[in-house]
Write a protein that binds this DNA or RNA. Structure first.
Length: 249
DNA sequence: GCGACAG
DNA sequence: ATCTTGTCGC
């Protein structure tokens, strides 16, 4: 049984200025180099809402690697405590996510989260924040852009273009490839043809290249990688997810 | 000052 | 995110 610090209200229910200050203090702690062990399980995390937003619903999926077989699925519901504010998403969704993780029978070796990693104004998106809290390798798998610019994305599945942003004063020198006053913070990946691309970024303890590799390796026939796809389904729709294993390539 | 803005 | 019907395409 994993044991994790209980999220105290005062640590998450912060005023915007305090939350931003905390992000700036935590961002330097993010590990951008690969620090993953052997991967035998991968988790997928996503959040949904009920009652017009009154209830937060955290969905956690645990898959076995490389079969991508479902080994555990958890749904955790609790009252919503923060409104959605661009850039402060983690404060709204992480408490519920931790509730789901506390019910997991064992820690995953890698986690994919619906949202950004360091591709964030202060380089601390929800995937990074959660990874730091759990001290586990995380990858951000966003369905849309929060910040940064990118050029045309190749049409071929698996190809991508860098997501770059203006370098911020507090950005560490090794945050990514630096070109002039810009830095690469993520990858805009064509996970599937004829569909809008995915925004991949390292969360914690995972480099961008490795993040893209893992997401690509978990792609099936759909736009989202299996971990996130299943968590997504569990977070929104009712009922459970039944899965028998990896889809044919 | 005017947009943009993860889920 | 969520509210919502049918519809086009592989």
């Amino acid at each position: 049984m994993p044991d994790l610090p209980t999220p105290a209200l005062h640590e998450w229910n912060l005023m915007p200025e305090a939350a931003i200050a905390l992000q700036k203090r935590l961002a330097p702690k993010i590990q951008r180099e690969d620090r993953l062990g052997e991967v035998s399980t991968i988790a997928g995390m996503d959040i949904g809402f009920e009652d017009g937003g009154e209830i937060t619903r955290a969905a956690l999926i645990l898959l076995e690697w490389p079969s991508l077989t479902l080994v555990e699925q958890i749904v955790h519901r609790e009252p919503t405590r923060m409104p959605y504010v661009p850039g402060l998403l983690s404060f709204r969704e992480i408490p519920a996510a931790l509730g789901a993780f506390s019910r997991l029978s064992r820690w995953p070796d890698l986690i994919m989260i619906d949202g950004q990693g360091i591709a964030h104004p202060r380089r601390l998106g929800i995937a990074s924040h959660l990874g730091l809290w759990l001290d586990l390798p995380t990858i951000g798998v966003g369905k849309s852009r929060l910040c940064g610019r990118f050029g045309d994305v190749p049409e071929e599945k698996g190809h991508w273009t860098p997501l770059t942003d203006r370098r911020r004063p507090e950005d560490p020198a090794d945050i990514g490839i630096v070109e002039g006053d810009r830095v690469t913070i993520g990858a805009v990946l064509r996970s599937r043809e004829n569909v809008k691309p995915l925004f991949i970024s390292g969360g914690h303890r995972v480099s961008l290249e490795t993040a893209v590799d893992w997401v690509t390796a978990c792609l099936g026939k759909t736009k989202l990688p299996e971990p996130t796809r299943l968590a997504d389904r569990l977070a929104s729709r009712r009922g459970e997810v039944r899965e028998s294993g990896r889809l044919p390539l």
